[in-house]
């Protein structure tokens, strides 16, 4: 087995006097699908956002694809390093955050157009094939406001994939969706995990998805990984009391 593609070591994060992450360590191998879950306030979203420095860690080291950044220096003093790390991570947000003033295709092409060295044609072809992958090639010319929430989130996934990231981060990707739209987003994610063996870290409470797709599940509690194991064990009813209580509450 090659070296882990993501290595998080001794991660702490405080907002003022509130310590949200109290020392998190995690190693993720290429192709793994990690499902992170826990109560609101347990630090799971902050953990995800620290990986690509949308939140600056207070302490610890983040390593993605062989490049590591240690906490302690504000992002604006090492912009290039952080930008490089962000390009190796694609992120999908709860609220989609599509750019409303651009067409669907332009949303997907924006970052590679500005940043990568590919030709305009390569960028366009890649963007179109990504849109086809998420089943929205026919919506390329539409504006986000004319799409349903599920369609918008699928575009957001295509947009995040456009930079050919090594790791995909999903921050509660289905929490803002109407129930009948959740399955189409999960289907796209399942496809990413199973057919493309994309490395993924997913913060979600979709336990069906976790059981089916995850290679490992991490229960966050009070700023730490309280318990982690493979999905079969997670659902076998013999977890730590805190984990079991939460699982019983959401299932």
């Amino acid at each position: 087995m090659s070296a882990p593609i993501v290595r998080v070591a001794g991660l702490h994060k405080s907002f003022g006097s509130l310590e949200v992450l109290k020392g998190v360590d995690m190693q993720i191998n290429a192709g793994e699908v990690i499902v992170v879950f826990g109560r609101s306030g347990s630090g799971k979203s902050t953990f995800l956002r620290c990986i690509n420095f949308l939140e600056e860690p207070t302490q610890g080291t983040i390593e993605v694809a062989g490049r590591s950044i240690a906490a302690g220096i504000p992002t604006r003093f090492r912009r290039k390093q952080v930008q490089h790390l962000r390009r190796t991570c694609g992120m999908v947000f709860q609220q989609f955050n599509l750019f409303p003033h651009m067409s669907v295709l332009d949303n997907v092409m924006e970052a590679p157009r500005r940043i990568s060295t590919q030709s305009a044609k390569q960028v366009r072809d890649h963007a179109m094939s990504l849109l086809a992958d998420v089943g929205l090639a026919d919506k390329a010319a539409e504006y986000p406001i004319r799409l349903s929430g599920g369609q918008q989130q699928r575009v957001a996934i295509a947009r995040a994939l456009a930079m050919r990231p090594q790791v995909m981060l999903f921050d509660e990707p289905t929490s803002a969706l109407d129930p009948e739209l959740i399955h189409e987003v999960l289907a796209v994610m399942r496809n990413l995990a199973q057919d493309h063996s994309t490395t993924m870290i997913v913060v979600t409470h979709e336990m069906g998805f976790a059981r089916e797709v995850a290679t490992r599940m991490c229960f966050f509690h009070e700023g730490r990984i309280h318990e982690q194991c493979e999905p079969e064990q997670m659902f076998d009813g013999s977890r730590l009391p805190e984990t079991q209580r939460f699982l019983d509450a959401v299932m």
Partner: peptide, 29 residues
């Protein structure tokens, strides 16, 4: 909305690119 700059940042765009390409076009309107 703050999520706009955040989405652009997560894609690896520089602060200048975020402002010129994402924030200002929406602010102009």
């Amino acid at each position: 909305p703050h999520g706009q700059a955040e989405a652009a940042a997560a894609l690896g765009m520089s602060p200048g690119q975020q402002m010129r390409r994402i924030i200002l076009p929406q602010a102009t309107r």
